Amino acid sequence: MGREAVKVGDKVPDFELNRQDGGIFRLYDLLKKKNVVLYFYPKDRTPGCTKQACEFRDQYETFKEQGAEVVGVSSDSVDSHKRFERIYHLPFILLSDKDGQLRSLFGVPRKLGILPGRVTYIIDKKGVVRYIFNSMTKPLEHVSTAISVLQELEKEEELKHQEV
């Protein structure tokens, strides 16, 4: 029986995967310092995925201002990710989920049962999923939605500090 999909309000499972620079990425190491925008996408250098990656790149400073790091995941190889990063000057981490284990750990759905889905998770520093955006056909909305969710999280944090 498959694991249930990760939902809003769930504590996200920790994981380790290879980064495009050959290092090992561990989610909880990053969550100690930042919120994480974890986005699963179908394939490097396809039209929608390229558009989406370039939009994350173009808005990257905004994500940093919101105290967040962007992390892209697909089943492409580390070498494919290196090329993708180099061609489009991507400033964020790309992870190679070769066998799709992370995708199934999160329960990322497939489109028509075959295409890897396009899903973005906004995870706060406590490791809690605060928002999930699932849309195959709106790659750019993943970016704008992530920014507005992070702005909401920042407002929540400010309110908490004022109450203390």
Rank of each mutant, 00 (worst) to 15 (best):
M1L: 08
M1F: 12
M1Y: 11
G2L: 05
R3T: 04
E4V: 11
A5I: 09
V6A: 01
V8A: 03
G9P: 00
D10S: 07
K11C: 01
K11H: 09
K11G: 02
V12W: 08
V12I: 12
V12Q: 04
P13N: 04
P13L: 01
P13H: 05
P13M: 03
D14H: 02
E16T: 12
E16G: 02
L17D: 01
N18S: 11
N18P: 12
R19Q: 09
Q20A: 14
Q20R: 10
Q20I: 07
D21V: 05
G22D: 07
G23I: 00
R26C: 04
R26F: 10
L30H: 14
L30W: 15
K32L: 11
V37M: 02
L38K: 05
L38P: 04
Y39Q: 06
Y41P: 08
P42Y: 12
C49P: 09
T50V: 12
T50P: 13
Q52M: 06
A53F: 14
R57G: 05
D58M: 12
Q59D: 08
F63Q: 03
K64C: 00
K64T: 04
V71R: 08
G72P: 13
S75W: 13
D76W: 03
S77C: 11
S77L: 10
V78I: 15
V78R: 12
H81P: 07
E85V: 13
R86Q: 14
R86Y: 12
H89E: 13
H89V: 14
P91V: 10
S96A: 11
S96G: 02
S96R: 10
G100V: 09
G100F: 07
L102I: 10
L102T: 07
R103Q: 14
R103L: 15
F106Y: 15
G107K: 05
V108E: 01
V108A: 01
P109R: 14
P109Y: 07
R110T: 15
R110S: 15
L112P: 10
G117T: 11
R118H: 11
R118M: 12
Y121Q: 12
Y121P: 14
G127I: 12
V129H: 05
Y131P: 01
I132M: 00
F133W: 14
N134K: 15
S135P: 08
T137F: 08
L140H: 03
L140C: 00
E141N: 02
E141D: 05
H142D: 07
T145E: 07
L150H: 05
E152C: 05
L153V: 10
E154P: 08
K155Q: 12
E158I: 12
L159Q: 02
K160H: 09
H161W: 06
H161P: 00
E163D: 09
E163P: 03
V164K: 06
